[in-house]
């Protein structure tokens, strides 16, 4: 699903990612751990095509990120969904409109959109807020809208940057259950987090650690090294 060799990325003179080698198989569940400023978001943005590869070779979901032109990036983004830390939802539109957006841009039929959006909203306990404007929602609810929008298209790969950051414990655990459900249906998932509790909830997940732009540790929960 993901194959990266010798990836480096810098903002001006500041090196954000240093010589990273990484691979992820289809159907894998990966936690990307590390402190703030370690380069997790930069790493995810490269995987989603929001940042161009500067050095190294990156393949995501069958797309060569080194050669993928801006005109063709939407093909990648239809296979790879992302939940950003700042949610990136439309505040002046309601929950339903935000969640249906990726289905609309794919030209999915109206009745299928309605069915799928309602199902996802129900699973994230947002069904009663479907017609509420997103700017009127709490941070946690906005985060759930972002997650709903990412999973509604059943992507091949789901990237989530701190998806439980604004949620209380119960909702965070519920969110992880939803990710687990999608994982069971074959979606590859990578979650950037530093929440130890959710790491423990996914004992079979693989954990990768980024620190100062260096991916220096890779292990499975329960101490099994791949």
């Amino acid at each position: 699903m993901i194959s990266i060799s010798r990836l480096s990325f810098s903002f001006g003179k500041q090196l954000a990612l240093k010589d990273i080698n990484f691979s992820m198989r289809q159907g894998e569940f990966v936690f990307l751990c590390g402190p703030s400023g370690a380069g997790k978001t930069t790493f995810m943005r490269i995987l989603h095509g929001a940042l161009a590869v500067q050095r190294g070779k990156v393949d995501v979901a069958g797309y060569n990120m080194n050669t993928l032109s801006e005109n063709r990036k939407h093909f990648l983004r239809r296979d790879v969904s992302v939940v950003y830390q700042d949610f990136k939802i439309l505040p002046d539109q309601n929950v339903f409109a935000n969640v249906e957006l990726p289905l609309k841009v794919r030209g999915v039929a109206r009745h299928i959109i309605d069915k799928r959006v309602r199902a996802v909203l129900r699973s994230l306990q947002l069904d009663k807020k479907a017609q509420t404007l997103c700017e009127e929602l709490s941070g946690g609810e906005q985060q759930r809208v972002a997650v709903a929008r990412a999973v509604v298209v059943k992507p091949k790969l789901l990237l989530a940057d701190e998806p439980t950051g604004n949620l209380d414990r119960d909702l965070a655990m519920r969110m992880m259950d939803i990710f687990q459900q999608f994982h069971k249906f074959g979606t590859s998932i990578m979650i950037a987090t530093h929440n130890q509790e959710i790491l423990e909830r996914m004992p079979c997940a693989r954990i990768v650690t980024l620190e100062n732009g260096v991916m220096h540790e890779e292990r499975l929960m329960h101490g099994v090294t791949p």
Binding site: H48, A50, E70, N71, K73, H74, R77, R78, S81, V82, Y84, K88, I89, L90, L101, P102, V105, R106, R149, V153
Partner: peptide, 16 residues
């Protein structure tokens, strides 16, 4: 700008 960026993120083509 933000709305168009979101559209790009959710897979909208340039033509869309």
């Amino acid at each position: 700008r933000e709305e168009l960026e979101i559209l790009r993120f959710v897979g909208a083509s340039r033509a869309y």
